[in-house]
Amino acid sequence: MKFYEVILMVSMFILVVSATLVAYRFIKGPTLADRIAALDLLSAHLIGIIALYAVFSEELLLMDAALILSLIGFLGTMSFAYFLIHKKE
C-alpha cells in the first residue's frame, strides 16, 4: 500500500470519527440552533467523505454529487435560519 493511499485512509477515518461526534451532538443538542449547526457540519463532513472517495476510486463523476450536496446543505441551513428569525416575530 502506497503512502498516498495510507494518507487517504487515515483522513477518511478521521472524518468518520468526527462525523460520529457531530451526529451525537445532532441527537443530544438541547436547542434547535444546536441541531441546525450540527446538520450543516454533518453535510460538510459528507461532502468531504464523498470527495475523498472520489479520489480513492478515481470516479470523477462523484465530484458533481459533492457539489450538488453542498448546494442542498447550504439551502437547508439558510432556510432553517430564515424560519428561526421569523418564528420569534
Binding site: D64, I68, L75, S79, Y82
Partner: peptide, 22 residues
C-alpha cells in the same frame, strides 16, 4: 449518457431561484 438529467438539473435551477427568493 452520464449521471444527470432533467430532474436533478431542475432541482439545481430551482435551488438557485430559492436562494434569490431568500
Amino acid at each position: 449518457d452520464h449521471p444527470g438529467g432533467g430532474f436533478i438539473a431542475a432541482l439545481v435551477a430551482s435551488v438557485g431561484f430559492i436562494f434569490h427568493m431568500l
